[in-house]
Amino acid sequence: MAGAFQNMKKPPVGRSEEDRILRVWTPLLLRTILIVAMIVLVVGLILAAIYTPEYFVDRYRAVQMGHLIGREKFATLANRILQRNPHAFLMIGLFVLTLVPLARVAFCFILFIRQRDWSYVVFTAYVLLGLIAGVLLGRVG
């Protein structure tokens, strides 16, 4: 779709407080989350290459055979982080990445509340609940 945006004039950007939330703070936060997630993932891969290269290869082969680790408790993940387990770092990096859409919807939610646009507050709340329901469905399904 990006090709459709070549050689076109920029539309006027709104100057209201709401626009500043959406067009200044949201991109800043989204980029920050993205960069943090990428740094965590790169650090995790470097740690894996240094400390657990055999485990990485074994896991790769196991995944090729369809053997996934499956559901893990968050407490187990936290413990593995404390033990500086590279794969726990990778999992944290992936979780941080998924905060990007959550943060984006949360900003829209704040925006619509400030605009007192209650129909869209309800729509945005539904989307937020849908994202949370996804986590719950994954845990029980």
Binding site: F56, G70, L94, L137
Partner: peptide
């Protein structure tokens, strides 16, 4: 939304996804 279901279910292989 889809990724959260996969992550919570443990269907994301970190060695591949990262």
């Amino acid at each position: 939304a889809g990724a959260l279901v996969f992550l919570a279910r443990g269907d994301v292989a970190t060695t591949i996804a990262a």
